[in-house]
Design a protein around this nucleic acid. Sequence first.
DNA 1: GCAAAAGTGTTGTCCTTACACCCATGC
DNA 2: GCATGGGTGTAAGGACAACACTTTTGC
Lengths: 246, 246
Amino acid sequence: MPERPKPIVANATLGNKNAVQLVGSYPTMPLTVDCVIFGFDENSLKVLLIKSDLSQFNGKLSLLGDQVHANEDLDTAANRVLYERTGMKKVYLEQAHTFSKLNRHPGGRVVTTVYASLLNINDHSLGITDNELKWHPVSEVKEMAFDHKEILDFCYNWLKKRIQEHPLALNLLPEKFSLRQLQNVYEAILDMKMDRRNFRKKFASMGFLIDTNEMEVHVTHRPGKLYKFDFEQYQLRKKNWVGIDF
Amino acid sequence: MPERPKPIVANATLGNKNAVQLVGSYPTMPLTVDCVIFGFDENSLKVLLIKSDLSQFNGKLSLLGDQVHANEDLDTAANRVLYERTGMKKVYLEQAHTFSKLNRHPGGRVVTTVYASLLNINDHSLGITDNELKWHPVSEVKEMAFDHKEILDFCYNWLKKRIQEHPLALNLLPEKFSLRQLQNVYEAILDMKMDRRNFRKKFASMGFLIDTNEMEVHVTHRPGKLYKFDFEQYQLRKKNWVGIDF
DNA sequence: GCAAAAGTGTTGTCCTTACACCCATGC
DNA sequence: GCATGGGTGTAAGGACAACACTTTTGC
């Protein structure tokens, strides 16, 4: 049995009191959002990065991040930052984790909530390229500013797991895609080869592929069929039972 | 192509500048942590809650939360809050999500990072019971203070998924447990009945159960074997491939 | 006609499910 | 001896892994 710790100050002194007073007694700190934006092009997984303009980091690569304004929630902030940095709107964004190490920012204590985002590089041309914004192959990113390498690694692991359970990878492709493109996405992200027949059978049996009756054009080999993903059906039928297994 | 948004102020004005100055220009806000502490007892899933002492909430139930200090990271804060509220230390804690709706706290803007925690009720007696701290069956919790009901629902869903992929539920049981107890945990959390033989086969085949050669005592039926979970083996052999399925 | 990738089926193995009977203990 | 849950095996069905040949297009 542990010894009884000191009571929490706010409770002891305020009792059944005013919420504004209570919140006023809390320390405040700056909050940022960082976006880890994955894209897919030329059969490899890319991530959208800028060069840090902090002198400490000497042009090291950095995620797309910025302060959270006093009057916006985190989802809004992440969307805004993405828009301000890239000119893109309405991108799928998902909160991944909040990082809070005390010394993670050289300018003082900054807590950051990280959002991961996936998009199709060819459908979203960059409207802005300040700070040398560009796509970098994930496998080639080594050093980064802040704790951003750690964050990138975290999000890459998150992505690997996530695409196996959600049709997230479809966001990396154009609306109409071939099964080869889809398999390339999976192979690139998971960093493994898969059997083509089994891969196609798996997706066919899920029943979310819509045959567009169109084919690839101008390819130097037999053209493949183009499909759309039936997100509507997916929403209706998605699993909630995964099965005990670890 | 979207119109080019206004440049981000911090970049435009500071250029390649001082990090301290940059962070100093960010708005600050109070940050809290909330702990969703699940426990298991009498074959039902419980959650540890207090009564809010804010007058607005009129004694409604609340998660265990408190401010994050200026000089502590979120993991530390969550552990501290748990200790201060319950007297318990060294509890498994995992960050689940950060909630940031602007009006979620009546005292002003407060962002909260939520940690989920699982523990065995009978192994952890409560050292402190201020604010009517006690265990509530999850299924019976209706109204709560703040957005805590929404947070609880989020964490309950998180838990359902999580226990299917990680040996998390073992934290809800004593070190030595019977397979019946284990199955009860799963049935209570997932809210479904399972076949006893298949459940046992499943766990036996995973190879993480260590037979203690002890039996239940003083039970009004044939006593069951007691097992330990081999966390060490689990760490060595845990899966990282789940298989595409959604 | 050659290179390159599309398209397609079968078989064996493993995992999951469904299901019924006897056993050890407390009272 | 009876109530309660412990312990066990098998058969059928479904999912997954492994594997090779023919087809269509561009050049």
